[in-house]
Design a protein around this nucleic acid. Structure first.
Lengths: 214, 214
DNA sequence: TATATATCTGAATGATCCTTCAGTTAGGAA
DNA sequence: TTCCTAACTGAAGGATCATTCAGATATATA
């Protein structure tokens, strides 16, 4: 899997080697800056200049790390998905031979934990998700998410699935929906996030139980 | 509830009366044009001029029906939400005194039917959803959706809910997630939409059963 | 210290876009 | 048929933006 932060450059004058930052961890800084701009100004006012400013570098520098604006947005999306994938892959390792009930909760917890750990990033990314051309968006990462959940499902000591791919897909989609809804409602109070965790668990347990061959 | 297509104008020179179209159902035509542009060009290339062209009117005319571009996007989003709300409100009327199992399926069916009836509009709207400022987005319509489902839930002959609002919210969010996921995957074949309907039903049944006080 | 080289800078370019409004057109009243 | 008015038109104003690149700067090496 390619490093999320190093999108393949497609510049007219391509560099031979990746930039060796002189001013600290610049890529990371630009990522964070983009998230902040997204939060404070919204997608339509996210400009390369603004992001660079917020990140403490010049536009020119930004363009040394990302070939264009789209690649920047793409990169922060990809990075976030990868965090979710890693969390789910950790669940796989930890749940071997456990009952379905437990797996269901672990999947929900992993998903929720990543989202809740960075509420700002989560909200920011929901603002980009629709704008990025989903066809260009690498399907690899989606496959990786689905596969991670499939692997967890096969760990169940007391259940099996005839269509694990479909089940994995639906579960992930449903969790994504509840997440999106919860964060959209975050304005009404931070206690929303506790409800998010509980509802995600309940949903995960209920759906997997119903979809499983016991 | 305000007419979705007549967003309150905030022009510098406000008109006293709504425009009386001379060229047919112009508002509707502009709505459809916007959806087509969204589908074929994406959000970043959706311009007022392009929408007007596609709709067979001039930009000037477009600005007689919508005070600005944001209002146009807002209006098509709102119209779609209202269709979903209407479908759910019809379910309320039709399901009085039925068992939870049936309510669950009816809710899922109503949701799925609206989305599947206009796949193009559904996909187009997912591209806008994040870009519109959710804070400006009227919370009224969300409340209306949640209330419609709450009313259906109270119809159950064999179950009750201690936190119907939370349950309604989670169910709607989860259905939205599955819908979004399914339509994003539509490229891999139209049979996806059949799976969408079945998974939505299964999810709805499973979650409501788990969340209910039997 | 002097030189070479890679990184950083930000003004300038060229393009796109939203929005307006002076002028044109069409439908209806008289 | 003529006139009135509301709807329609689209070129132009004003603003914003993505991207480039020639020059400035900092680090490493000799």
């Amino acid at each position: 899997m390619k490093d999320a932060s190093q999108v393949v450059p497609q510049r007219l004058k391509p560099r031979k080697t990746p930039v060796q930052s002189r001013s600290g961890v610049t890529v990371e800084a630009i990522h964070e800056a983009a998230i902040q701009v997204l939060l404070s100004e919204g997608l339509s006012r996210l400009t390369t200049t603004r992001v660079a400013e917020r990140g403490g570098v010049s536009v020119g520098t930004l363009y040394q790390y990302f070939p264009n604006k789209e690649a920047l947005l793409f990169a922060i999306l990809l990075r976030h998905f990868e965090e979710v994938a890693e969390a789910l892959e950790r669940v796989d390792i930890a749940t071997n031979g456990r009952p379905l009930e437990e797996l269901a909760e672990s999947i929900a917890d992993a998903y929720v934990s990543v989202k809740v750990a960075r509420p700002d990033a989560t909200i920011a990314l929901y603002r980009v998700a629709g704008a990025i051309d989903q066809f260009k968006m690498s399907p690899d990462i989606h496959v990786r998410l689905v596969n991670a959940v499939i692997r967890v499902l096969t760990n169940a000591s007391d259940a099996s699935f005839t269509e694990p791919r479909k089940v994995s897909f639906t579960l992930l989609s449903a969790l994504a929906g509840v997440s999106r809804g919860s964060f959209a409602n975050l304005a009404s109070g931070p206690e929303i996030l506790e409800g998010f965790r509980e509802e995600a668990r309940l949903l995960s347990r209920a759906y997997l139980r119903a979809a499983a061959q016991i």
